[in-house]
Write a protein that binds this DNA or RNA. Structure first.
Lengths: 229, 229
DNA sequence: ATAAAATATATTGTATACAAAATTTAATTA
DNA sequence: TAATTAAATTTTGTATACAATATATTTTAT
């Protein structure tokens, strides 16, 4: 009769290395650590009040995720994101997002569809009062549902990782003139096609959305429009 | 005048965790550790004559790669590969291999093309005397060149990782009747289309190859044909 | 004899310690 | 003064030690 407590504890337990990893990742994404900057284990450990062990394990994970580059016996450096990197990531993401959209059109549940539609409305309100922080938050939730609806956990993980690698590192492309409105329209079309269970339509919508997002990101990078909050 | 030695040392240096990681990965792939089996750090460390530290770091990496599953405070277990996993992996791989083939058709160098053609011949000889080990080896090299030719390092890494996650875990599907000959023909067509710089043709060839490979793998799994050397 | 509780053991998570290598600083020489 | 070499410092890589938690075993009570 004491069986359900264990379950909760099991899920809620997070090893230090996870917390440390999330902390460092966030610091990279929000610019606390600049690209090319060296990350030193003792320093990070001291700052966070933990030992080197969990820091090391966190750094190993971030290396696999592509956020940092490790040179044996030399140290760890925050990854530099180049135009080539954007290109590489979007080459893959366009492909995988199209796949995910098609799968979602086939496999999404009615509940998930309802959630998507609600988020669509919510984004609208945040766009109206130009609340960028909220927009990013809801946008992330939106895509999360979409990838979950593909019913392919690996696909979800790979895309999430690719998203994180570029989202935010050079500022969101959200503040590019006109992009917000376009994004909304693209999302609406995507949801509409998925709701219609139109696989090809959903795929086409996803492709257009991603290609536009890449173009905007490249433009804002080239123009040095790296606006940070 | 001592500048070039450093370069070599830098490349050749491999941390213990890397060696340990490769060692454990290989043991999982070749069946030394069975799916579901628990991996204990001290035991592994003792067997390999190292301390727990590099073993832990290796296990963290294998978790990211999907070879093992970690439950906090409970332990690490060799991942179970299910039909659903095969499905998920191939859903992604078909998509990414098609992408890679298309990119390769655009970006491959003449040298790489020559290498591919050579390997095609080499595989032929190994098929003739049914040297499975050599076939797997050359096949890996073949695909490696292909992914390298896509000029997208991230793509290469993702595909390599997906390949490793299923190749070998349930025995190669190579020993499925007739598959070897089909594989050869599919490879030949793929190289031919790439050589012709025919993007769409290369993509189609890659898709056919992967779909067939998946079918064969599923068949041999269902038939319990998990032949091991 | 079976089930529950308490104890013992084993294993993971984290911290610290030491060794090897790289980087930096200081010193020496041309 | 500049360049080269040597010493000192820093930092990573690995090993070990300790603490917290989970599992296994034994004991006890019904």
């Amino acid at each position: 009769m004491a069986g359900h407590l264990e379950q909760i504890r099991l899920d809620s337990y997070k090893p230090l290395r996870e917390l440390v990893c999330e902390h460092i990742r966030q610091a990279i994404i929000d610019g606390t650590f600049s690209p090319g900057e060296r990350l030193m284990e003792i320093q990070l450990a001291d700052e966070m009040g933990v030992s080197r062990t969990p820091v090391r394990e966190a750094i190993r994970k971030l290396e696999l995720e592509g956020f940092v580059v490790m040179i044996p016996r030399r140290g760890t450096y925050v990854a530099n994101i180049s135009i080539k990197d954007i290109n590489d990531v979007y080459e893959i993401r366009i492909c995988l997002d199209v796949l995910a959209a098609g799968l979602a059109a086939e496999r999404i549940t009615e509940e998930e569809l309802e959630d998507l539609k609600k988020l669509l409305v919510e984004i609208g309100t945040h766009v109206a009062d130009y609340n960028l922080e909220k927009i990013v938050e809801v946008d992330t939730a939106f895509h999360d549902i979409l990838y979950t609806a593909s019913r392919n956990e690996r696909l979800r993980n790979i895309i999430s990782n690719l998203r994180e690698q570029i989202t935010g590192i050079r500022g969101t492309s959200m503040n590019y003139p006109g992009r917000l409105a376009d994004t909304m329209a693209e999302h609406r079309l995507l949801v509409e096609r998925i709701a219609a269970r139109d696989v090809e339509g959903a795929q086409a919508a996803a492709r257009v959305h991603l290609e536009n997002a890449e173009q905007t990101l490249l433009k804002s990078m080239l123009e040095g429009q790296n606006a940070k909050d």
